[in-house]
Amino acid sequence: MQEQPELLIKPGMGAIHYWKDIWRYRELFFFLAWRDILVRYKQTAIGIAWSVIRPLATMLVFTVVFGTLAKLPSNGVPYPIMVYAAMLPWQFFANSLTESSNSLIDNANLLTKVYFPRLIVPAGSVLVGLVDFFISMVILVIIMAWYHFVPDFRMLLLPLFLILAFLASFGAGLWFSALNVKYRDFRYVVPFLVQFGLYISPVGFSSSIVPEKWRMLYFLNPMVGVIDGFRWAIMGDAFPVYWPGLALSTSLTLLIFIGGLFYFRNMERSFADVI
C-alpha cells in the first residue's frame, strides 16, 4: 500500500488544497456542463436551434424598432450587424448570469451529498453560456457574409473582449449564486436585472448616442465596455472605443470578479448547511 497524502479537516480551513482540488475535479466540471447542455434541449423538437433563434429574433426586433422606426444611427454599418455584434456578448452575459445564479440551488441535492469545490457549479453554467456564444458566433459570420462585410485585423482582439465578458459573467454569477443560497430574493432580482440590463446596455443602439457628459457614468455598467469592445473589434473605426470608459468598465469587472471570488469562497463553507 503506498503512503497516501493525509487529509486534515478542521474548522475554518479546507482552503489549503482548494485550487488543487479544482484541478482534480476538472472532469466533474466538464461533466456538469455537458449534462446541462444535454438536458437543455431534451424533448424539444428543434433542439439546439433554440440557442440561435433567440438572439436572432431579438436582433430582428431591435433592428426594426431602433433602426427602421426610431432611425437611430449605425455609423454606416448595416444595422443588423451592429445589433448582433452587441447581442453576442449580451446574450452570453445574460444566459450565464441567469443560469449560474440559480446553479447552486438547482444542484442542492449534490451540494448536500457530495464534496467538490463548489466553484465548479457556477463555472459550469458559464461554460454552457460560452458554448451558446460560439453557436451564435456562426450566425454572425453568416450575417456578415450576407452583407459582404469584411472585418479587419482588429477581429483578432475579439478574444480579449470575450475574456472580459467572461469575467463579468462569472464574477456576477459568483456573487448572485452565493447570495441566492442564503437569500432567495435574488431568484427574482436576477431576471429583472437581466431584462432591465438589455435596455440600459447599448445593445439595440450605439453608445455614441449617449450625451458626452454622461459618457463616463454610462461605463459604470461593465457590459457597456464589453459591448463597445466587441463592436470595435468587429466593425472597426465606425465604432471608436472610448478608452477611459473601457478602462473603467474593465477595472469594475475585475473588482466584481475578484470580490465575487472572495465572497463565494467565504460563503462556500456554509452552503450545505444553509441551502
Binding site: 497516501q4 497524502p5 493525509e6 487529509l7 486534515l8 479537516i9 478542521k10 474548522p11 475554518g12 479546507g14 444542484n107 441535492n109 449534490l110 451540494l111 448536500t112 451529498k113 457530495v114 464534496y115 463553507r269 456554509s270 450545505a272 448547511d273
Partner: peptide
C-alpha cells in the same frame, strides 16, 4: 466526507475517500 465543516476539533484521513450518502446522487 467534507460536505460540511466542523465547528470544533479535527479529522485526519489517509487515503482516497468515497462517500455514499444517498443512492443515485446527481
Amino acid at each position: 466526507s467534507r460536505i460540511t465543516e466542523p465547528t470544533t476539533g479535527s479529522v485526519r484521513i489517509k487515503g482516497r475517500v468515497a462517500s455514499l450518502l444517498e443512492v443515485g446522487t446527481g
